[in-house]
Design a protein around this nucleic acid. Structure first.
Lengths: 144, 144
DNA sequence: TTTATTCAATTGACTAGTAAACTGATGTTA
DNA sequence: TAACATCAGTTTACTAGTCAATTGAATAAA
């Protein structure tokens, strides 16, 4: 018992950090009347629009059911539109959605960055980015 | 726009990695008829029992409402007990809960570790642990 | 031309979290 | 002793995700 390998300690710290940073982001984004999940979706659409629901789900590491629900919410608030072409729906931002994300993006990016900038120097951040790239890529191709 | 600072790229990779690793853990833990959230709670109780709900919530970075629900579920499945003393409830594992977590722990820890062990060497893991410790500590004391 | 197949998207039933309002024992004060 | 304050825990109403079953448009086959 007490299998406190270095790896499992890293896992725990990372899981708690992400959870905590999502709580903080949600609190921060209240001023834009948005959650961090909604911000994340709008930001991806902003980069890749027009994009299919399937592709969006994959970029967000979310199921097709999950993306469907989320887009229904965002559509109801007139932040995005779904245009059906053949049997695929293409997602784009509305003017309102584009204005919102362009407004929120710099501040939210700043906030996210502060979580790292406050405690890491430039070299450490490069190190961390390299390490994260390796483990994230590995996790995407891993199967049970 | 396109504020792709190094820090915000790290944030994105970390968020996606944690999400993906939770999906994989849930799939893995199906064999024990458990979710990764339940595993996490049982593992913390195993280390700290007897522990109050408040303390448990803090260790798991979860709200008091969240821990209340989760413990109700685990109690219904006879994995934990709550003993009221004064106005505080102390949580402990039942024999069934202890058996389950002791059974699942080595395999789950192994699985978690493989996410890092497969792509990082010992030095890189030490680096990553040091960096994660810094940023997690910072996130816990950060306020909006 | 009708039937079957495919596959993106949706829906139903679930877990897991949040904030905010409420409950209920235990102390404190008038 | 009766009213009030405190504070852990619970509950309500919500967001956000999962899997599995279903829907529906387009294409292929009989």
């Amino acid at each position: 018992m007490e299998q406190n390998t270095l790896s499992s300690l890293i896992w725990l710290r990372m899981a708690r950090f992400v959870q905590r940073s999502n709580q903080l982001s949600n609190e921060f984004l209240e001023r834009y009347d948005m959650t961090v999940a909604q911000f994340d979706v709008l930001a991806q659409i902003h980069i890749y629009e027009p994009i299919t629901q399937m592709d969006l789900a994959e970029k967000l590491t979310v199921s097709s059911g999950g993306i469907s629900r989320m887009l229904t919410r965002l559509e109801k608030e007139c932040l995005i539109v779904r245009k059906q072409d053949w049997k695929i729906k293409y997602i784009s931002l509305t003017d309102k959605g584009r204005a919102l994300i362009q407004d929120a993006m710099p501040e939210q990016t700043n906030f996210q960055s502060s979580l790292f900038d406050e405690v890491l120097d430039e070299t450490e951040k490069k190190q961390l980015y390299t390490l994260m790239t390796k483990i994230q890529k590995n996790s995407l191709q891993k199967k049970i």
